Computed example of a mutant assay.
Amino acid sequence: MTSAALEGAVAGLGVAVPLGAVGVLLLQEGRRGWAPAAGGATAVAAVDGAYATVAVLAGPQVAALLAGHEGTVRLVSALLLGAIAVHGLLGLRRAVEPAPDASARGAGRAFLRFTLLTAVNPATALYFTALIAARGTGTHAGATAFVTGVFLASLLWQHLLAAAGAFAGARLGPRLRRVTYAVGYGLVGLLALRLAL
């Protein structure tokens, strides 16, 4: 169970750490105060956890369909994760600009707004589906530990962003943004290598 939780934590950080438009918006939300930023942070982590849960629940059906083709599944999943990592790392060459920010007050409204912003990202769903198809769901306890690891790692990272926005006025420069991209997509690349090997 500990191994599954750690795998989930690494997977959660792999999808959470790259600082895209939602992350920049979360930093900016901090200017409105801690409560709205924390609401937004919780929403992002909740969507990550929900996508991981859906991937785990669909895992047995996917596994039954792909029985006997495990090697191919691992290779395809590794290639998919590798493509996500490469695409993200290539994004280091261009600046990440936040989307226009609508005015929102309070943690509840921020939670709803960030839920919608995060839920429309299909890459997150593909990411967790590829991981689960390759690793399998294991036991019920292992699957629960994996999802919990994803959620808690994402929640921790998103709340760190919220705190940074609240305390530092969301003044994150391009250099630090590039570092977060490299770290996050580097984690995705490491997961791809682990699956391939």
Rank of each mutant, 00 (worst) to 15 (best):
T2Q: 05
S3W: 06
L6S: 08
G8W: 03
A9E: 01
G12L: 04
G14V: 05
A16N: 05
A16F: 02
L19D: 03
L19W: 02
G20P: 04
A21Q: 07
V22G: 01
V24L: 14
V24S: 00
L26C: 03
L27I: 13
E29N: 04
G30N: 06
G30L: 08
R31E: 10
G33V: 04
G33M: 01
W34R: 11
W34D: 04
A35L: 12
P36N: 07
A37W: 08
A37I: 13
A38I: 14
G39D: 07
A43R: 00
A43T: 06
V44H: 11
A45M: 06
A45H: 05
A46W: 05
G49E: 01
A50C: 14
A52E: 07
V54F: 13
A55N: 05
V56S: 12
P60I: 08
Q61T: 14
V62K: 01
A63L: 12
A63C: 06
A64V: 10
L66A: 15
A67L: 09
G68H: 05
H69S: 14
E70T: 14
E70F: 06
E70H: 05
G71E: 09
V73R: 00
A78K: 04
L80T: 15
L80C: 13
L81V: 12
L81M: 10
L81H: 01
G82H: 02
G82P: 02
G82A: 12
A83Y: 10
A83S: 11
I84R: 00
R93S: 12
A95P: 09
A95W: 05
V96E: 13
E97M: 11
E97V: 15
A99G: 13
P100D: 13
A104N: 05
R105F: 05
A107S: 14
F111V: 11
T115I: 10
T115H: 01
T118S: 11
T118M: 01
V120K: 00
V120F: 00
P122E: 08
A123P: 04
A125S: 10
A125L: 15
L131G: 13
A133N: 00
R135N: 14
R135I: 09
T137H: 12
A143I: 09
T144K: 09
T144H: 07
A145M: 11
A145F: 13
F146S: 01
V147S: 02
V147G: 02
V150K: 00
L152N: 06
L152S: 13
S154F: 03
S154C: 08
W157K: 05
W157H: 08
W157I: 13
Q158Y: 09
A162P: 11
A162L: 10
G165W: 02
F167M: 12
F167T: 15
A168N: 07
A168D: 09
G169Q: 08
A170E: 05
L172S: 03
P174S: 12
R175M: 08
R175S: 13
L176Y: 08
L176C: 09
R178N: 11
T180M: 13
T180F: 14
A182T: 14
V183S: 10
L190R: 06
L190I: 15
L191P: 03
L191C: 12
L193V: 15
L195D: 03
L195G: 06
